[in-house]
Design a protein around this nucleic acid. Structure first.
Lengths: 282, 282
DNA sequence: AGTGAGTATGAAATTTTATTTCATAATTTT
DNA sequence: AAAATTATGAAATAAAATTTCATACTCACT
Protein backbone atom coordinates (compact mmCIF):
# COMPACT_ATOMS: atom_id res chain seq x y z
CA UNK A 1 0.00 0.00 0.00
CA UNK A 2 1.14 3.48 -0.79
CA UNK A 3 2.71 4.94 2.32
CA UNK A 4 1.84 8.51 1.45
CA UNK A 5 -1.82 7.58 1.41
CA UNK A 6 -1.35 5.80 4.67
CA UNK A 7 0.18 8.88 6.27
CA UNK A 8 -2.71 11.08 5.27
CA UNK A 9 -5.19 8.47 6.42
CA UNK A 10 -3.67 8.18 9.85
CA UNK A 11 -3.02 11.87 10.22
CA UNK A 12 -5.52 12.19 13.07
CA UNK A 13 -4.29 9.24 15.07
CA UNK A 14 -0.91 10.96 15.33
CA UNK A 15 0.31 13.15 18.14
CA UNK A 16 0.97 16.83 17.66
CA UNK A 17 4.69 16.46 17.04
CA UNK A 18 4.25 13.45 14.87
CA UNK A 19 1.82 15.38 12.76
CA UNK A 20 4.49 17.99 12.15
CA UNK A 21 6.67 15.24 10.79
CA UNK A 22 3.85 13.98 8.63
CA UNK A 23 3.26 17.40 7.19
CA UNK A 24 6.87 17.94 6.30
CA UNK A 25 6.93 14.57 4.59
CA UNK A 26 3.71 15.10 2.69
CA UNK A 27 4.74 18.53 1.52
CA UNK A 28 7.92 17.33 -0.10
CA UNK A 29 8.40 13.60 0.05
CA UNK A 30 11.14 13.57 -2.54
CA UNK A 31 13.36 15.71 -0.32
CA UNK A 32 12.81 13.43 2.62
CA UNK A 33 14.15 10.33 0.97
CA UNK A 34 17.51 12.07 0.78
CA UNK A 35 17.46 13.37 4.35
CA UNK A 36 18.87 11.77 7.48
CA UNK A 37 16.68 11.40 10.50
CA UNK A 38 18.45 14.41 12.04
CA UNK A 39 17.75 16.61 9.04
CA UNK A 40 14.10 15.67 8.98
CA UNK A 41 13.78 16.26 12.74
CA UNK A 42 15.25 19.70 12.38
CA UNK A 43 13.04 20.51 9.42
CA UNK A 44 9.96 19.60 11.45
CA UNK A 45 11.27 21.26 14.59
CA UNK A 46 11.03 18.15 16.66
CA UNK A 47 13.48 15.60 18.00
CA UNK A 48 14.91 12.56 16.35
CA UNK A 49 13.17 10.01 18.56
CA UNK A 50 9.86 11.53 17.53
CA UNK A 51 10.63 10.84 13.91
CA UNK A 52 11.54 7.32 14.84
CA UNK A 53 8.29 6.80 16.74
CA UNK A 54 6.42 8.24 13.80
CA UNK A 55 7.97 5.65 11.51
CA UNK A 56 7.07 2.80 13.81
CA UNK A 57 3.51 3.98 14.08
CA UNK A 58 3.28 3.45 10.32
CA UNK A 59 4.30 -0.16 10.73
CA UNK A 60 7.79 0.27 9.44
CA UNK A 61 10.84 -1.06 11.23
CA UNK A 62 12.42 2.34 11.69
CA UNK A 63 13.52 5.38 9.78
CA UNK A 64 15.60 3.68 7.06
CA UNK A 65 12.83 1.21 6.44
CA UNK A 66 10.34 4.04 6.28
CA UNK A 67 12.43 5.77 3.65
CA UNK A 68 12.45 2.61 1.61
CA UNK A 69 8.69 2.48 1.65
CA UNK A 70 8.51 6.13 0.80
CA UNK A 71 10.90 5.67 -2.12
CA UNK A 72 8.76 2.84 -3.45
CA UNK A 73 5.62 4.92 -3.24
CA UNK A 74 7.28 7.74 -5.08
CA UNK A 75 8.51 5.56 -7.90
CA UNK A 76 5.65 5.94 -10.34
CA UNK A 77 4.55 2.40 -9.93
CA UNK A 78 2.65 1.43 -13.02
CA UNK A 79 3.14 -2.25 -13.53
CA UNK A 80 2.58 -3.53 -16.99
CA UNK A 81 -1.04 -4.23 -17.55
CA UNK A 82 -3.12 -5.30 -20.41
CA UNK A 83 -4.65 -2.10 -21.67
CA UNK A 84 -6.90 -2.22 -24.67
CA UNK A 85 -6.43 0.17 -27.50
CA UNK A 86 -9.14 2.75 -27.80
CA UNK A 87 -10.57 4.24 -30.95
CA UNK A 88 -9.30 7.74 -30.18
CA UNK A 89 -5.82 6.86 -29.03
CA UNK A 90 -2.91 8.87 -30.38
CA UNK A 91 0.13 7.12 -31.84
CA UNK A 92 1.84 7.70 -28.53
CA UNK A 93 -0.96 6.04 -26.63
CA UNK A 94 -1.53 2.98 -28.75
CA UNK A 95 2.19 2.35 -29.02
CA UNK A 96 2.53 2.39 -25.26
CA UNK A 97 -0.54 0.22 -24.81
CA UNK A 98 0.60 -2.40 -27.27
CA UNK A 99 4.09 -2.67 -25.84
CA UNK A 100 2.73 -2.82 -22.33
CA UNK A 101 0.11 -5.40 -23.14
CA UNK A 102 2.75 -7.48 -24.83
CA UNK A 103 4.91 -7.36 -21.75
CA UNK A 104 1.98 -8.09 -19.45
CA UNK A 105 1.09 -11.09 -21.57
CA UNK A 106 4.64 -12.39 -21.59
CA UNK A 107 4.48 -12.28 -17.83
CA UNK A 108 1.19 -14.19 -17.88
CA UNK A 109 2.59 -16.71 -20.31
CA UNK A 110 5.63 -17.31 -18.20
CA UNK A 111 3.47 -18.01 -15.20
CA UNK A 112 1.43 -20.59 -17.08
CA UNK A 113 4.52 -22.53 -18.12
CA UNK A 114 5.62 -25.63 -16.31
CA UNK A 115 9.39 -25.70 -16.38
CA UNK A 116 9.62 -29.40 -15.67
CA UNK A 117 7.77 -29.97 -18.93
CA UNK A 118 10.20 -27.66 -20.68
CA UNK A 119 12.96 -29.77 -19.32
CA UNK A 120 11.31 -32.92 -20.63
CA UNK A 121 10.74 -31.31 -24.00
CA UNK A 122 14.39 -30.40 -24.23
CA UNK A 123 15.27 -34.00 -23.38
CA UNK A 124 13.07 -35.25 -26.14
CA UNK A 125 14.37 -32.70 -28.63
CA UNK A 126 18.03 -33.44 -28.03
CA UNK A 127 17.26 -37.09 -28.58
CA UNK A 128 15.15 -36.65 -31.70
CA UNK A 129 15.95 -38.16 -35.07
CA UNK A 130 13.95 -35.45 -36.78
CA UNK A 131 12.11 -32.37 -35.58
CA UNK A 132 9.06 -30.90 -37.34
CA UNK A 133 7.28 -27.66 -36.53
CA UNK A 134 3.69 -27.19 -37.66
CA UNK A 135 1.58 -24.05 -37.44
CA UNK A 136 -1.02 -22.17 -39.44
CA UNK A 137 -1.71 -18.46 -39.78
CA UNK A 138 0.12 -16.46 -37.14
CA UNK A 139 1.52 -19.63 -35.61
CA UNK A 140 3.07 -20.50 -38.94
CA UNK A 141 5.59 -17.77 -38.49
CA UNK A 142 6.48 -19.22 -35.11
CA UNK A 143 7.10 -22.58 -36.71
CA UNK A 144 9.14 -20.82 -39.36
CA UNK A 145 11.20 -19.09 -36.73
CA UNK A 146 11.74 -22.33 -34.86
CA UNK A 147 13.10 -23.93 -38.01
CA UNK A 148 15.44 -20.99 -38.47
CA UNK A 149 16.81 -21.53 -34.95
CA UNK A 150 17.06 -25.31 -34.92
CA UNK A 151 18.56 -25.33 -38.37
CA UNK A 152 21.60 -23.65 -36.87
CA UNK A 153 22.01 -26.62 -34.55
CA UNK A 154 22.66 -28.82 -37.55
CA UNK A 155 19.81 -31.20 -36.72
CA UNK A 156 17.21 -32.45 -39.20
CA UNK A 157 14.41 -29.92 -38.87
CA UNK A 158 11.50 -28.92 -41.09
CA UNK A 159 8.51 -26.66 -40.80
CA UNK A 160 5.25 -26.70 -42.70
CA UNK A 161 2.51 -24.11 -42.86
CA UNK A 162 0.49 -26.03 -45.42
CA UNK A 163 -2.23 -28.45 -44.32
CA UNK A 164 -1.41 -31.14 -46.86
CA UNK A 165 2.31 -31.10 -46.29
CA UNK A 166 1.68 -31.31 -42.57
CA UNK A 167 -0.55 -34.35 -43.02
CA UNK A 168 1.90 -36.11 -45.27
CA UNK A 169 4.74 -35.36 -42.93
CA UNK A 170 2.75 -36.55 -39.91
CA UNK A 171 1.87 -39.80 -41.58
CA UNK A 172 5.50 -40.43 -42.39
CA UNK A 173 6.68 -39.84 -38.87
CA UNK A 174 7.92 -42.63 -36.65
CA UNK A 175 9.31 -43.41 -33.24
CA UNK A 176 12.11 -41.00 -32.36
CA UNK A 177 10.62 -38.17 -34.36
CA UNK A 178 9.38 -35.10 -32.56
CA UNK A 179 6.49 -33.05 -33.89
CA UNK A 180 5.83 -29.65 -32.38
CA UNK A 181 2.37 -28.33 -33.08
CA UNK A 182 1.71 -24.66 -32.46
CA UNK A 183 -1.74 -23.15 -32.12
CA UNK A 184 -2.99 -20.50 -29.77
CA UNK A 185 -6.64 -21.50 -29.93
CA UNK A 186 -5.83 -25.22 -30.02
CA UNK A 187 -9.06 -25.66 -31.97
CA UNK A 188 -7.92 -25.61 -35.56
CA UNK A 189 -9.34 -28.88 -36.85
CA UNK A 190 -6.66 -29.79 -39.31
CA UNK A 191 -3.91 -29.20 -36.79
CA UNK A 192 -5.62 -31.32 -34.18
CA UNK A 193 -5.91 -34.08 -36.77
CA UNK A 194 -2.26 -33.73 -37.69
CA UNK A 195 -1.28 -34.02 -34.03
CA UNK A 196 -3.38 -37.16 -33.78
CA UNK A 197 -1.85 -38.64 -36.93
CA UNK A 198 1.65 -38.01 -35.69
CA UNK A 199 0.87 -39.56 -32.34
CA UNK A 200 -0.61 -42.66 -33.96
CA UNK A 201 2.62 -43.01 -35.89
CA UNK A 202 4.59 -43.05 -32.64
CA UNK A 203 6.11 -39.62 -32.90
CA UNK A 204 6.40 -37.57 -29.71
CA UNK A 205 3.97 -34.70 -30.08
CA UNK A 206 4.68 -31.49 -28.22
CA UNK A 207 1.88 -28.94 -28.24
CA UNK A 208 2.38 -25.23 -27.76
CA UNK A 209 -1.14 -24.13 -27.01
CA UNK A 210 -3.63 -23.00 -24.40
CA UNK A 211 -4.47 -25.29 -21.47
CA UNK A 212 -7.38 -27.66 -21.95
CA UNK A 213 -7.93 -27.30 -25.70
CA UNK A 214 -8.69 -30.17 -28.11
CA UNK A 215 -5.13 -29.93 -29.38
CA UNK A 216 -3.74 -30.22 -25.85
CA UNK A 217 -5.55 -33.56 -25.49
CA UNK A 218 -3.71 -35.04 -28.47
CA UNK A 219 -0.23 -34.19 -27.28
CA UNK A 220 2.39 -36.22 -25.44
CA UNK A 221 3.68 -33.04 -23.80
CA UNK A 222 1.69 -29.82 -23.56
CA UNK A 223 3.61 -26.60 -23.12
CA UNK A 224 0.72 -24.43 -22.06
CA UNK A 225 0.87 -20.76 -22.85
CA UNK A 226 -2.05 -18.83 -21.52
CA UNK A 227 -2.26 -15.26 -22.72
CA UNK A 228 -5.17 -12.91 -23.05
CA UNK A 229 -5.46 -11.59 -26.56
CA UNK A 230 -6.95 -8.23 -27.26
CA UNK A 231 -9.97 -9.57 -29.07
CA UNK A 232 -11.22 -6.18 -30.17
CA UNK A 233 -8.65 -5.98 -32.90
CA UNK A 234 -9.31 -9.40 -34.38
CA UNK A 235 -5.64 -10.13 -34.91
CA UNK A 236 -3.30 -12.48 -33.08
CA UNK A 237 -0.78 -10.35 -31.26
CA UNK A 238 0.56 -11.44 -27.88
CA UNK A 239 0.01 -15.12 -28.48
CA UNK A 240 2.60 -15.45 -31.20
CA UNK A 241 5.10 -13.38 -29.25
CA UNK A 242 4.75 -15.64 -26.23
CA UNK A 243 5.16 -18.62 -28.53
CA UNK A 244 8.36 -17.16 -29.92
CA UNK A 245 9.73 -16.57 -26.46
CA UNK A 246 9.00 -20.20 -25.71
CA UNK A 247 10.86 -21.24 -28.85
CA UNK A 248 13.80 -19.23 -27.55
CA UNK A 249 13.58 -21.10 -24.29
CA UNK A 250 13.54 -24.48 -26.02
CA UNK A 251 16.40 -23.53 -28.31
CA UNK A 252 18.42 -22.26 -25.38
CA UNK A 253 17.72 -25.42 -23.40
CA UNK A 254 18.86 -27.40 -26.39
CA UNK A 255 22.19 -25.57 -26.71
CA UNK A 256 22.84 -25.79 -22.99
CA UNK A 257 22.15 -29.51 -22.98
CA UNK A 258 24.56 -30.01 -25.83
CA UNK A 259 27.51 -28.42 -24.04
CA UNK A 260 30.11 -25.83 -24.84
CA UNK A 261 31.71 -27.43 -27.87
CA UNK A 262 28.33 -27.31 -29.53
CA UNK A 263 28.06 -23.62 -28.83
CA UNK A 264 31.35 -22.91 -30.55
CA UNK A 265 29.67 -24.34 -33.60
CA UNK A 266 26.89 -21.82 -33.35
CA UNK A 267 29.45 -19.09 -33.42
CA UNK A 268 30.82 -20.51 -36.65
CA UNK A 269 27.37 -20.51 -38.18
CA UNK A 270 26.95 -16.91 -37.21
CA UNK A 271 30.40 -15.93 -38.45
CA UNK A 272 29.62 -17.51 -41.79
CA UNK A 273 27.18 -14.66 -42.35
CA UNK A 274 29.80 -12.01 -41.90
CA UNK A 275 30.76 -11.58 -45.54
CA UNK A 276 27.17 -10.77 -46.39
CA UNK A 277 27.26 -7.77 -44.11
CA UNK A 278 28.77 -4.32 -44.17
CA UNK A 279 31.57 -3.90 -41.69
CA UNK A 280 31.02 -2.08 -38.49
CA UNK A 281 33.45 0.83 -38.37
CA UNK A 282 34.44 1.49 -34.82
CA UNK B 1 16.95 4.78 -15.12
CA UNK B 2 16.30 1.39 -13.66
CA UNK B 3 19.25 0.51 -11.49
CA UNK B 4 18.89 -3.23 -12.08
CA UNK B 5 19.32 -2.66 -15.77
CA UNK B 6 22.24 -0.46 -15.05
CA UNK B 7 23.88 -3.17 -12.98
CA UNK B 8 23.56 -5.74 -15.72
CA UNK B 9 24.78 -3.27 -18.31
CA UNK B 10 27.90 -2.41 -16.36
CA UNK B 11 28.55 -5.95 -15.27
CA UNK B 12 31.72 -6.16 -17.29
CA UNK B 13 33.15 -2.87 -16.15
CA UNK B 14 33.08 -4.17 -12.60
CA UNK B 15 35.91 -5.87 -10.79
CA UNK B 16 35.72 -9.49 -9.76
CA UNK B 17 34.53 -8.83 -6.22
CA UNK B 18 32.15 -6.15 -7.30
CA UNK B 19 30.63 -8.55 -9.76
CA UNK B 20 29.93 -10.94 -6.91
CA UNK B 21 27.97 -8.18 -5.25
CA UNK B 22 26.13 -7.49 -8.49
CA UNK B 23 25.16 -11.12 -8.84
CA UNK B 24 23.79 -11.38 -5.34
CA UNK B 25 21.75 -8.26 -5.92
CA UNK B 26 20.42 -9.37 -9.29
CA UNK B 27 19.47 -12.78 -8.03
CA UNK B 28 17.28 -11.45 -5.27
CA UNK B 29 16.96 -7.71 -5.25
CA UNK B 30 14.02 -7.71 -2.89
CA UNK B 31 16.08 -9.32 -0.14
CA UNK B 32 18.83 -6.78 -0.54
CA UNK B 33 16.69 -3.78 0.20
CA UNK B 34 16.21 -5.18 3.68
CA UNK B 35 19.84 -6.03 4.26
CA UNK B 36 22.53 -3.93 5.87
CA UNK B 37 25.79 -3.41 4.09
CA UNK B 38 27.34 -6.01 6.40
CA UNK B 39 24.72 -8.61 5.58
CA UNK B 40 25.14 -8.07 1.86
CA UNK B 41 28.92 -8.20 2.13
CA UNK B 42 28.69 -11.49 3.94
CA UNK B 43 26.24 -12.90 1.44
CA UNK B 44 28.58 -12.07 -1.42
CA UNK B 45 31.66 -13.20 0.50
CA UNK B 46 33.41 -9.89 0.17
CA UNK B 47 34.10 -6.96 2.47
CA UNK B 48 31.93 -4.00 3.31
CA UNK B 49 34.10 -1.41 1.60
CA UNK B 50 33.73 -3.35 -1.62
CA UNK B 51 29.99 -3.04 -1.42
CA UNK B 52 30.41 0.63 -0.85
CA UNK B 53 32.69 1.02 -3.84
CA UNK B 54 30.22 -0.94 -5.90
CA UNK B 55 27.47 1.50 -4.98
CA UNK B 56 29.57 4.48 -5.89
CA UNK B 57 30.50 3.01 -9.22
CA UNK B 58 26.82 3.01 -10.03
CA UNK B 59 26.65 6.73 -9.39
CA UNK B 60 24.90 6.52 -6.08
CA UNK B 61 26.04 8.38 -3.00
CA UNK B 62 26.64 5.24 -0.98
CA UNK B 63 24.93 2.12 0.20
CA UNK B 64 21.79 3.69 1.69
CA UNK B 65 21.32 5.78 -1.41
CA UNK B 66 21.83 2.70 -3.55
CA UNK B 67 19.12 0.87 -1.62
CA UNK B 68 16.79 3.75 -2.27
CA UNK B 69 17.38 3.50 -5.99
CA UNK B 70 16.96 -0.23 -5.84
CA UNK B 71 13.70 0.12 -3.95
CA UNK B 72 12.45 2.51 -6.58
CA UNK B 73 13.38 0.17 -9.38
CA UNK B 74 11.59 -2.67 -7.70
CA UNK B 75 8.50 -0.61 -7.11
CA UNK B 76 8.51 0.43 -10.71
CA UNK B 77 6.26 -2.34 -11.81
CA UNK B 78 8.53 -5.16 -12.73
CA UNK B 79 12.22 -5.67 -12.31
CA UNK B 80 12.78 -6.94 -15.80
CA UNK B 81 16.42 -6.97 -16.58
CA UNK B 82 18.51 -8.34 -19.31
CA UNK B 83 20.13 -11.32 -17.64
CA UNK B 84 22.36 -13.55 -19.66
CA UNK B 85 21.84 -17.26 -19.61
CA UNK B 86 24.56 -19.17 -17.86
CA UNK B 87 25.95 -22.54 -18.75
CA UNK B 88 24.72 -24.17 -15.55
CA UNK B 89 21.25 -22.70 -15.42
CA UNK B 90 18.35 -25.00 -14.69
CA UNK B 91 15.27 -24.99 -16.92
CA UNK B 92 13.63 -22.80 -14.33
CA UNK B 93 16.42 -20.31 -14.44
CA UNK B 94 16.93 -19.98 -18.15
CA UNK B 95 13.20 -19.77 -18.76
CA UNK B 96 12.91 -16.90 -16.31
CA UNK B 97 15.95 -15.18 -17.76
CA UNK B 98 14.74 -15.40 -21.33
CA UNK B 99 11.28 -14.12 -20.57
CA UNK B 100 12.68 -11.33 -18.46
CA UNK B 101 15.26 -10.32 -21.00
CA UNK B 102 12.58 -10.28 -23.65
CA UNK B 103 10.45 -7.99 -21.56
CA UNK B 104 13.40 -5.77 -20.69
CA UNK B 105 14.26 -5.46 -24.35
CA UNK B 106 10.71 -4.63 -25.30
CA UNK B 107 10.92 -1.81 -22.82
CA UNK B 108 14.20 -0.66 -24.35
CA UNK B 109 12.76 -0.91 -27.83
CA UNK B 110 9.76 1.14 -26.90
CA UNK B 111 11.97 3.86 -25.55
CA UNK B 112 13.97 4.04 -28.76
CA UNK B 113 10.85 4.51 -30.88
CA UNK B 114 9.77 7.90 -32.09
CA UNK B 115 5.98 7.91 -32.13
CA UNK B 116 5.76 10.84 -34.51
CA UNK B 117 7.55 8.67 -37.06
CA UNK B 118 5.10 5.88 -36.36
CA UNK B 119 2.35 8.30 -37.08
CA UNK B 120 3.95 9.29 -40.37
CA UNK B 121 4.47 5.66 -41.29
CA UNK B 122 0.81 4.93 -40.67
CA UNK B 123 -0.07 7.90 -42.86
CA UNK B 124 2.06 6.56 -45.63
CA UNK B 125 0.76 3.01 -45.24
CA UNK B 126 -2.91 3.98 -45.36
CA UNK B 127 -2.18 5.90 -48.52
CA UNK B 128 -0.12 3.20 -50.21
CA UNK B 129 -1.01 1.55 -53.49
CA UNK B 130 0.99 -1.47 -52.58
CA UNK B 131 2.88 -2.55 -49.48
CA UNK B 132 5.91 -4.86 -49.52
CA UNK B 133 7.73 -6.32 -46.54
CA UNK B 134 11.31 -7.53 -46.96
CA UNK B 135 13.44 -9.37 -44.44
CA UNK B 136 16.03 -12.13 -44.31
CA UNK B 137 16.75 -14.76 -41.68
CA UNK B 138 14.99 -14.00 -38.42
CA UNK B 139 13.58 -10.79 -39.86
CA UNK B 140 11.97 -12.79 -42.64
CA UNK B 141 9.47 -14.16 -40.20
CA UNK B 142 8.62 -10.63 -39.14
CA UNK B 143 7.95 -9.71 -42.76
CA UNK B 144 5.88 -12.86 -43.06
CA UNK B 145 3.87 -11.93 -40.01
CA UNK B 146 3.34 -8.42 -41.31
CA UNK B 147 1.93 -9.81 -44.51
CA UNK B 148 -0.40 -12.02 -42.50
CA UNK B 149 -1.72 -8.95 -40.68
CA UNK B 150 -1.99 -6.51 -43.54
CA UNK B 151 -3.55 -9.13 -45.74
CA UNK B 152 -6.56 -9.02 -43.43
CA UNK B 153 -6.94 -5.35 -44.24
CA UNK B 154 -7.66 -6.23 -47.82
CA UNK B 155 -4.82 -4.11 -49.16
CA UNK B 156 -2.27 -5.24 -51.75
CA UNK B 157 0.55 -6.63 -49.66
CA UNK B 158 3.42 -8.99 -50.35
CA UNK B 159 6.43 -10.25 -48.46
CA UNK B 160 9.66 -11.69 -49.77
CA UNK B 161 12.42 -13.49 -47.96
CA UNK B 162 14.37 -14.23 -51.10
CA UNK B 163 17.08 -11.88 -52.30
CA UNK B 164 16.20 -12.09 -55.97
CA UNK B 165 12.48 -11.65 -55.50
CA UNK B 166 13.19 -8.68 -53.29
CA UNK B 167 15.39 -7.09 -55.97
CA UNK B 168 12.85 -7.66 -58.72
CA UNK B 169 10.07 -6.34 -56.60
CA UNK B 170 12.10 -3.28 -55.60
CA UNK B 171 12.94 -2.48 -59.20
CA UNK B 172 9.29 -2.66 -60.15
CA UNK B 173 8.18 -0.33 -57.40
CA UNK B 174 6.96 3.15 -58.11
CA UNK B 175 5.66 6.29 -56.49
CA UNK B 176 2.88 5.47 -54.06
CA UNK B 177 4.33 2.08 -53.15
CA UNK B 178 5.63 1.49 -49.67
CA UNK B 179 8.51 -0.85 -49.01
CA UNK B 180 9.23 -1.88 -45.45
CA UNK B 181 12.70 -3.28 -44.94
CA UNK B 182 13.40 -5.15 -41.73
CA UNK B 183 16.87 -5.88 -40.39
CA UNK B 184 18.18 -5.77 -36.86
CA UNK B 185 21.82 -5.30 -37.80
CA UNK B 186 20.99 -2.99 -40.71
CA UNK B 187 24.18 -4.22 -42.36
CA UNK B 188 22.97 -7.00 -44.61
CA UNK B 189 24.36 -5.91 -47.96
CA UNK B 190 21.62 -7.20 -50.19
CA UNK B 191 18.90 -5.62 -48.09
CA UNK B 192 20.64 -2.27 -48.07
CA UNK B 193 20.86 -2.51 -51.85
CA UNK B 194 17.19 -3.41 -52.11
CA UNK B 195 16.28 -0.40 -49.99
CA UNK B 196 18.35 1.78 -52.27
CA UNK B 197 16.76 0.32 -55.40
CA UNK B 198 13.29 0.90 -54.06
CA UNK B 199 14.12 4.45 -53.13
CA UNK B 200 15.54 5.19 -56.57
CA UNK B 201 12.28 3.96 -58.04
CA UNK B 202 10.38 6.51 -55.95
CA UNK B 203 8.85 4.12 -53.44
CA UNK B 204 8.64 5.26 -49.82
CA UNK B 205 11.09 3.11 -47.90
CA UNK B 206 10.45 2.49 -44.22
CA UNK B 207 13.26 0.82 -42.32
CA UNK B 208 12.79 -1.18 -39.15
CA UNK B 209 16.36 -1.32 -37.87
CA UNK B 210 18.86 -0.06 -35.36
CA UNK B 211 19.77 3.63 -35.26
CA UNK B 212 22.67 4.75 -37.46
CA UNK B 213 23.14 1.64 -39.58
CA UNK B 214 23.83 1.62 -43.34
CA UNK B 215 20.25 0.52 -43.90
CA UNK B 216 18.92 3.44 -41.87
CA UNK B 217 20.72 5.82 -44.21
CA UNK B 218 18.82 4.50 -47.23
CA UNK B 219 15.34 4.89 -45.78
CA UNK B 220 12.75 7.62 -46.11
CA UNK B 221 11.52 6.87 -42.61
CA UNK B 222 13.54 4.98 -40.00
CA UNK B 223 11.65 3.28 -37.21
CA UNK B 224 14.57 2.69 -34.91
CA UNK B 225 14.43 -0.27 -32.60
CA UNK B 226 17.39 -0.50 -30.29
CA UNK B 227 17.61 -3.71 -28.31
CA UNK B 228 20.55 -5.48 -26.74
CA UNK B 229 20.79 -9.02 -27.96
CA UNK B 230 22.34 -11.73 -25.86
CA UNK B 231 25.31 -12.25 -28.11
CA UNK B 232 26.58 -15.30 -26.23
CA UNK B 233 23.96 -17.49 -27.78
CA UNK B 234 24.54 -16.46 -31.37
CA UNK B 235 20.85 -16.39 -32.20
CA UNK B 236 18.53 -13.46 -32.82
CA UNK B 237 16.03 -13.41 -29.98
CA UNK B 238 14.74 -10.12 -28.63
CA UNK B 239 15.25 -8.19 -31.85
CA UNK B 240 12.61 -10.06 -33.81
CA UNK B 241 10.15 -9.87 -30.94
CA UNK B 242 10.52 -6.11 -30.74
CA UNK B 243 10.05 -5.96 -34.50
CA UNK B 244 6.83 -7.95 -34.22
CA UNK B 245 5.52 -5.65 -31.52
CA UNK B 246 6.24 -2.77 -33.85
CA UNK B 247 4.33 -4.50 -36.64
CA UNK B 248 1.42 -4.77 -34.22
CA UNK B 249 1.68 -1.06 -33.58
CA UNK B 250 1.68 -0.23 -37.27
CA UNK B 251 -1.21 -2.57 -37.97
CA UNK B 252 -3.17 -1.11 -35.08
CA UNK B 253 -2.45 2.42 -36.25
CA UNK B 254 -3.66 1.37 -39.66
CA UNK B 255 -6.98 0.01 -38.41
CA UNK B 256 -7.57 3.02 -36.20
CA UNK B 257 -6.91 5.41 -39.06
CA UNK B 258 -9.35 3.56 -41.24
CA UNK B 259 -12.26 3.93 -38.82
CA UNK B 260 -14.86 1.67 -37.29
CA UNK B 261 -16.53 0.39 -40.44
CA UNK B 262 -13.18 -0.99 -41.45
CA UNK B 263 -12.87 -2.84 -38.16
CA UNK B 264 -16.19 -4.57 -38.69
CA UNK B 265 -14.56 -5.98 -41.75
CA UNK B 266 -11.76 -7.44 -39.71
CA UNK B 267 -14.32 -9.25 -37.63
CA UNK B 268 -15.75 -10.79 -40.77
CA UNK B 269 -12.32 -12.01 -41.79
CA UNK B 270 -11.86 -13.57 -38.42
CA UNK B 271 -15.31 -15.14 -38.42
CA UNK B 272 -14.57 -16.68 -41.77
CA UNK B 273 -12.14 -18.95 -39.98
CA UNK B 274 -14.76 -20.28 -37.62
CA UNK B 275 -15.74 -23.34 -39.59
CA UNK B 276 -12.16 -24.53 -39.58
CA UNK B 277 -12.20 -24.73 -35.79
CA UNK B 278 -13.70 -26.97 -33.16
CA UNK B 279 -16.45 -25.28 -31.21
CA UNK B 280 -15.81 -24.01 -27.81
CA UNK B 281 -18.24 -25.73 -25.47
CA UNK B 282 -19.16 -23.36 -22.74
C1' DA C 1 60.78 -16.45 -14.10
C1' DG C 2 61.42 -11.60 -11.91
C1' DT C 3 60.41 -6.73 -11.08
C1' DG C 4 57.63 -2.89 -10.54
C1' DA C 5 53.53 0.10 -11.51
C1' DG C 6 48.98 0.03 -11.00
C1' DT C 7 44.82 -1.77 -9.22
C1' DA C 8 41.79 -4.32 -6.05
C1' DT C 9 40.69 -5.72 -1.56
C1' DG C 10 39.73 -6.04 3.38
C1' DA C 11 40.93 -4.99 8.56
C1' DA C 12 40.56 -1.57 11.54
C1' DA C 13 39.45 3.12 12.80
C1' DT C 14 36.40 6.71 12.29
C1' DT C 15 32.35 8.98 11.31
C1' DT C 16 27.67 9.19 10.57
C1' DT C 17 23.20 7.78 11.52
C1' DA C 18 19.57 5.61 14.06
C1' DT C 19 17.70 3.78 18.33
C1' DT C 20 17.10 3.25 23.19
C1' DT C 21 16.79 4.86 27.70
C1' DC C 22 15.18 7.76 30.88
C1' DA C 23 13.96 12.13 32.98
C1' DT C 24 10.81 15.78 32.36
C1' DA C 25 7.04 18.25 30.34
C1' DA C 26 2.43 18.36 28.69
C1' DT C 27 -2.08 16.62 28.80
C1' DT C 28 -5.90 14.23 30.49
C1' DT C 29 -8.65 12.13 34.07
C1' DT C 30 -10.60 12.05 38.46
C1' DA D 1 -5.60 20.43 41.98
C1' DA D 2 -3.53 15.96 42.38
C1' DA D 3 -2.71 11.71 40.11
C1' DA D 4 -2.28 9.17 36.09
C1' DT D 5 -1.23 8.98 31.56
C1' DT D 6 0.97 10.22 27.54
C1' DA D 7 4.26 12.84 24.68
C1' DT D 8 8.69 14.61 24.07
C1' DG D 9 13.67 15.39 23.78
C1' DA D 10 18.64 15.14 25.83
C1' DA D 11 21.91 12.07 26.31
C1' DA D 12 23.75 7.48 25.94
C1' DT D 13 24.13 3.60 23.26
C1' DA D 14 24.02 0.83 19.37
C1' DA D 15 24.16 0.10 14.61
C1' DA D 16 25.53 1.06 10.19
C1' DA D 17 28.27 3.16 6.76
C1' DT D 18 32.52 5.23 5.29
C1' DT D 19 37.37 6.29 5.29
C1' DT D 20 42.02 5.20 5.81
C1' DC D 21 45.67 2.53 5.02
C1' DA D 22 48.43 -1.66 4.57
C1' DT D 23 48.62 -5.67 1.84
C1' DA D 24 47.53 -8.78 -1.94
C1' DC D 25 46.88 -9.35 -6.51
C1' DT D 26 47.38 -8.45 -11.71
C1' DC D 27 49.47 -7.26 -15.64
C1' DA D 28 53.10 -5.17 -18.53
C1' DC D 29 57.73 -5.23 -19.32
C1' DT D 30 62.23 -7.18 -18.86
Amino acid sequence: MNILEKISNELDTLSKSERKVAEVILSSPSTVIHSSIAALAKQANISEPTVNRFCRRLDTKGYPDFKLHLAQSLANGTPYVNRHVDENDSADEYTAKIFESTMANLELARKSLDTSLINRSVDVLTQANKISFFGLGASAIVAHDAQNKFFRFNVPVVYFDDILMQRMSAINSRQGDVVIVISHTGRTKSLVEVANLAKENDATVIGITTTGTPLAKECSIVLSLDVSEDTDLYMPMSSRIAQLALIDVLATGFTLRRGSKFRDNLKKVKDSLRSSRFDRKE
